[in-house]
């Protein structure tokens, strides 16, 4: 799966979780860029992404990933 395809599917998940159709995430997007992205929503988001891509983040990754770019790196490394 290409990076663009991952971003496309990620956007769908973000829009669904945060109930905002205008969300467009990119490599540098962080929790500061999305109003409702707090520590609780972060877990909901992670679980939704895991379901979307059929993979698992470990807890270290959950608590340390800095931006969506890092998230995409992990997804690609898992799904090949």
């Amino acid at each position: 799966m290409s990076r663009e395809e991952v971003f496309e599917r990620l956007n769908k998940v973000f829009r669904d979780i945060f109930d905002d159709k205008s969300i467009m995430v990119n490599e540098e997007t962080t929790s500061n860029d999305i109003e409702d992205w707090d520590s609780l929503e972060h877990i909901n988001l992670i679980v939704a992404i895991e379901q979307e891509f059929g993979m698992k983040f470990n807890m270290h990754e959950v608590t340390t990933m800095k931006n969506v770019g890092e998230m995409v790196d992990i997804i690609i490394s898992r799904i090949g």
Partner: peptide, 19 residues
């Protein structure tokens, strides 16, 4: 507590099934 109990609990399969 957040890192070692709350997050793992919230992310557990049981909680996700409940959700």
């Amino acid at each position: 507590l957040k890192d070692y109990i709350f997050y793992p609990l919230l992310k557990s399969d049981e909680m996700q099934d409940l959700a």
